[in-house]
Every structure is written in structure tokens, then in C-alpha cells.
């Protein structure tokens, strides 16, 4: 374990993966809330065009990909804001045009699909010394903006009309979210890869929403889950000699599965009891000598009925009223 950390390429890969694991779910939280979960995937396709262009011209891939992807993201968002992206057709053309032209340009550069593979699925050894500084700088900026603007971004993602009536600049913030998503996608291309980064924007968010109650808890929880998956997957890919991005995403899905198994206990959903108003008008059937051992057992559905609790069993609601039981 210690000797892995002394390897320079491994240090760079771990730092880059950790930062991706933090920023992807942070920005992903707002994208998921806006029901645009697949935006990251589309932006990844656009970034491939930037990588292809960089390979063809022999320039550094990261800056070219960042610029290409940000431009693509702005175009997508402006089309959406002006209601022209109907039927997702424009998006599909942009995204697959990006993928196709990227592969085409990489081919002209003599690299072909194989040369692109490290960018598509992530690779441990590919983060260069110069790149890691760019990655750190961009990640810190994204993290800073996302966390400090979180209340506003949350308000916009929940209810755009209301946010606008508050005087919030909704269109500007929506544009900011897609630009930040575009930068996140490209910053993560060396570790998670352009075809898989969208998973890291969505899966930790779903995991956190399973496990935590409340937006703030889920927001920071998602970042924690993302960081855990990213670091765990990077270490795993060293031992298993697998593509880093694929290992990170499989780890993230394993954590999601775990949250399904134990998330119910973490959330303590029994705290949130459905409420039925007691109009005092329905028939109560007094049920004497009724067995109430089922009450308070785990798995019994509890409903707050006016001022008291009912326990559901055998298809009816059952409540203790002083010295007797009622069936509602």
C-alpha cells in the first residue's frame, strides 16, 4: 500500500481521481435535480472532438478539450433556453457529431480508436506532471463556485419560476451549471474517462439520496461517496490492471447497491409517518381483546391519524383508543 503511494504516477492518478470524485457529484446533484442526468454523457462526447483535434494538431489535449466542451455546453444550454432543442434532436446531432468527428480526427492523426481509449475509459499512467496542476486549479475553482452558490443553484433546480420571481438570474445560473459540468467532464477524462464520467455525476447522487435526508446532507454525502468510489476504484485498477474509469464506476455502483441494502436504516424512514386527517366522521369498529402485538414491530406501516397513530395489519388500520382498540 505504502509503496503504491510513493509511485509518482500513482500519486497524480489518486489526486486527479479524488478531485473528480468530489466535483462530479457536486455539480451532478443539480443536474440530476433538473432531470438532465444524461447531460454529462453528451458533453463527454463533445469533449472527444476536442481530444481528436488536439491529437491531430499535436497540442495538449486537456486545454483543447476544455474549450471545445465548454463551447458545446453553452450551445446546448442556449438552444434549450430558446426552446429550440425540441425532441432532443439538436442535442443528439451535436453529441454524436462530436464523437464521430473526434474519432475521425484521431484516425487522421494515426491514433485511431485505440489512441482514444485512454481518454474514453481512463488510464492510471496518463496524467502528466503539467496536467495535474491544471486539474487541481480547475477542480478547486469548480468546488468553490458550486459549494458557495449551492443555495441559489438549489433554488433554481427545484423551481425556476419561483427563483426568477426572487430576482435570481436563472438563465445565467443555468448556463453556469452546464459550463461547470463541461469543465468537470474534461478534467476527469484522464482518470474516469469521457464515456464514463457521467456515471460519477449521477450514481453517487443516487447513493446519497438513498442514504441521507435533506438536500445539504445529500449534496455533501454525494461528494463523500464519489471521493470514496474514485479513490477505491483507482487503487483497485492498480491491483487488477484494469481501466481506471471502469473500476471507479463499478465501485460506485457497488456503493449504490450497499446503500439500497442499508439505506433504509440510515434514513430511518419510519420517522416520516404518513398523515391522515381525522375528520371524526368515519365509523370506528371497537375491537375488543384485539391482539396488538403487531404494533411497534419493524415493517408495520404506521399512519398518523389526526392525533394518534394507526398500525396497518390485515388490510385495516388499527389504533389503541384508551382502554380499547379501534379498527379504522
Amino acid at each position: 500500500m505504502i509503496e503504491i503511494l510513493s509511485l509518482p504516477f500513482m500519486q497524480r492518478a489518486l489526486i486527479a481521481a479524488l478531485l473528480s470524485g468530489l466535483i462530479a457529484p457536486a455539480i451532478g446533484t443539480f443536474i440530476v435535480q433538473r432531470k438532465m442526468s444524461l447531460l454529462g454523457d453528451g458533453l463527454g462526447h463533445v469533449a472527444i472532438m476536442g481530444v481528436g483535434f488536439a491529437l491531430m494538431t499535436g497540442t495538449a489535449p486537456l486545454p483543447v478539450a476544455v474549450v471545445t466542451c465548454v463551447v458545446g455546453a453553452v450551445v446546448v444550454e442556449l438552444l434549450r433556453q430558446h426552446g429550440k432543442a425540441s425532441g432532443d434532436l439538436a442535442l443528439a446531432i451535436l453529441f454524436y457529431g462530436g464523437l464521430a468527428s473526434g474519432v475521425l480526427m484521431a484516425g487522421i492523426a494515426g491514433q485511431g480508436a485505440a489512441g482514444l481509449s485512454a481518454f474514453l475509459f481512463g488510464s492510471l499512467t496518463s496524467v502528466s506532471q503539467n496536467e495535474i496542476y491544471v486539474v487541481i486549479a480547475l477542480a478547486v475553482v469548480i468546488l468553490g463556485i458550486t459549494i458557495t452558490l449551492a443555495p441559489r443553484l438549489f433554488a433554481v433546480s427545484v423551481d425556476e419560476n419561483y427563483a426568477q420571481v426572487l430576482g435570481i438570474r436563472v438563465k445565467l445560473l443555468n448556463l453556469l451549471v452546464v459550463v461547470l459540468a463541461a469543465v468537470t467532464v474534461t478534467v476527469s477524462m484522464r482518470t474516469v474517462g469521457l464515456l464514463l464520467i457521467s456515471a460519477l455525476m449521477v450514481i453517487p447522487v443516487a447513493t446519497a439520496q438513498q442514504s441521507f435526508v435533506g438536500f445539504t446532507a445529500s449534496f455533501f454525502g454525494a461528494m463523500g461517496v464519489g471521493a470514496l468510489a474514485a479513490v477505491g476504484g483507482t487503487l483497485g485498477s492498480f491491483y487488477l490492471d484494469t481501466a481506471t474509469g471502469a473500476t471507479i464506476v463499478v465501485t460506485a455502483i457497488a456503493l449504490l447497491g450497499l446503500s439500497w441494502l442499508i439505506g433504509g436504516k440510515l434514513r430511518r424512514s419510519d420517522r416520516f409517518i404518513p398523515f391522515i386527517e381525522d375528520h371524526g366522521q368515519h365509523l370506528h369498529e371497537p375491537a375488543e381483546n384485539h391482539d396488538d402485538r403487531h404494533a411497534d414491530q419493524p415493517g408495520v406501516l404506521v399512519i398518523q391519524h389526526g392525533d394518534h397513530l394507526d398500525y396497518v395489519h390485515d388490510g385495516h388500520r388499527h389504533a389503541r383508543h384508551g382502554d380499547h382498540y379501534d379498527e379504522h
Binding site: A155, V158, I168, V213, F215
Partner: peptide, 16 residues
């Protein structure tokens, strides 16, 4: 909303 709390939803009003 996925799982924002009542207080978090109401807190948006203070953004004005």
C-alpha cells in the same frame, strides 16, 4: 424534489 427537507425548501425564500 428528491429529498430536500421542508426547511431547505422554505429557506430559498430568504435568497431574495
Amino acid at each position: 424534489v428528491a429529498n430536500a427537507t421542508v426547511r431547505e425548501i422554505a429557506a430559498s425564500g430568504r435568497l431574495a
